[in-house]
Design a binder for these strands. Structure first.
Lengths: 241, 241
DNA sequence: GGAGATTACGAGTGATTGCTCGCATTCGTC
DNA sequence: GACGAATGCGAGCAATCACTCGTAATCTCC
């Protein structure tokens, strides 16, 4: 389940943040690898391999969500996926790459869920209506993929992992800013950027509540999240005359 | 600087979450320690020791804020404080205890900053005025102690560390709920609890923005945070008739 | 059904790190 | 100035964990 299987950018990930496992660095590297897999090596892969990648990413999502990034071991991910550690490292060069693949998958999904913000007609739909329609699927996504929140939204993992959230956040920020532009074209851009940042931050703050709440509270809480954002944005647009 | 020095509950911290470092567990423990330091062992301590504790906690705050909990090594804390690892372990039984001491210190400070919420006169001061007066010192505190946010508010460290934030969060939630009760006594308690949770979550969400922003943006952002909370609470109180 | 590539395994390796231990130094007190 | 207690040191231990490697099973394609 869940279309993780689209084989993200695996293979050219951080080759220097990892622990240097080279005991004798004085030895010159054999120069045949430069022409071998220099740039365009999409890697032959069987259907079984694709399935394994999906299994591994799903398992990683669960373990990361339960334990956070640094506390999860690659062996735990492999065990949860029902494979050996060696097999895991056939598909991912290191632990970071697993998180990176997850991040890319999540970013793609969320980007799709945020597209409605770009095509709203402000003369036909109020801001409240737009949010009321768009928020529930986003909430559902986060409840289905808690690792997204735990790792890439507000989580504090080691530096290079945090970098992965930046593109997603930048895109989300842009979506919000675009939405604000639609509803308040006269707002000075500086204020609009600030408003988008605050809106995004508030949204990120309430998400954990929504993800950890029992199922039956979700509609009510989603409504409250909408109220929070609309309440703020109303004030922002009113003060910006 | 910074009055950390009030010697928190060090010495009776988690004695089981640590790695079992006893090679031969068959050996029976000498029974004289049960009567020795069973419950009330406040530990004789010189002024020098208090100073070291303060140094260590301050250093820990910096390192934790920079690297997060699990990425910081106890040796790094000791080095930053200018002491040897052995000295660190004279004052703290383990890494967790350092974080716990920090958490207690932060919780005390924040609790004090939140007391204004308990003594507001709703007939003389509007909700907006109350927040406008109380938020800036809280923001200043978090900017002065970034580790508080990184470790205990929204951070995802290994489990037992997350437990430390719960008392602080519970107290903050109670303060907000009390404030809401003052301004909307007719609101059903269920809705009031929910509103307090959402308010707290939104506040937690915007804090990182405030801590990481350059100095000159802080007043403006604090104003936006106030708008966010007031905008939501206005709606909450209006819908609750 | 055979050749070559891909997949799978899992015990092992080396680096990291929380923490200890024996011993030296300084402090408080008489 | 002398005694015990508190403080201070830092090399090193033991456990953990990301990652490797030799080898064997399985797939693809002829």
């Amino acid at each position: 389940m869940l279309a993780f299987v689209n084989a993200p950018t695996i293979g050219r990930v951080s080759t220097e943040t990892t622990r240097a496992q080279t005991p004798t660095p004085g030895e010159a590297p054999t120069p045949d690898q430069a022409a071998d897999a220099s740039e365009a090596g999409p890697k032959r892969r069987q259907a079984r391999g694709e399935r394994r990648i999906a299994q591994l990413l799903e398992a990683a999502g669960h373990v990361f969500a339960e334990s956070g990034y640094s506390a999860t071991t690659t062996n735990a991910i492999a065990a949860r996926a029902g494979v050996s550690p060696g097999s895991l490292y056939q598909y991912f060069p290191n632990k970071d790459a697993i998180a990176a693949a997850l991040a890319e998958s999540y970013a793609d999904s969320l980007d799709e869920l945020l597209t409605p913000f770009a095509v709203v007609d402000p003369t036909a739909v109020t801001l409240e209506q737009a949010l009321g329609a768009s928020l529930p699927p986003i909430v559902d996504f986060h409840r289905a993929h808690p690792a997204c929140l735990a790792l890439f939204i507000g989580g504090n993992a080691p530096g290079h992992i945090m970098d992965l959230q930046q593109p997603l956040m930048a895109r989300t920020h842009a979506r919000i800013a675009a939405l604000l532009t639609l509803y308040a074209p006269q707002l000075p851009s500086e204020r609009l950027q600030l408003g988008a940042s605050v809106t995004l931050a508030a949204y990120k703050g309430v998400l954990p509540l929504l993800v950890e709440s029992p199922e039956e509270l979700v509609p009510e809480l989603t409504e409250q999240l909408k109220d929070l954002l609309v309440g703020y944005l109303d004030r922002l647009l009113a003060n910006g005359d």
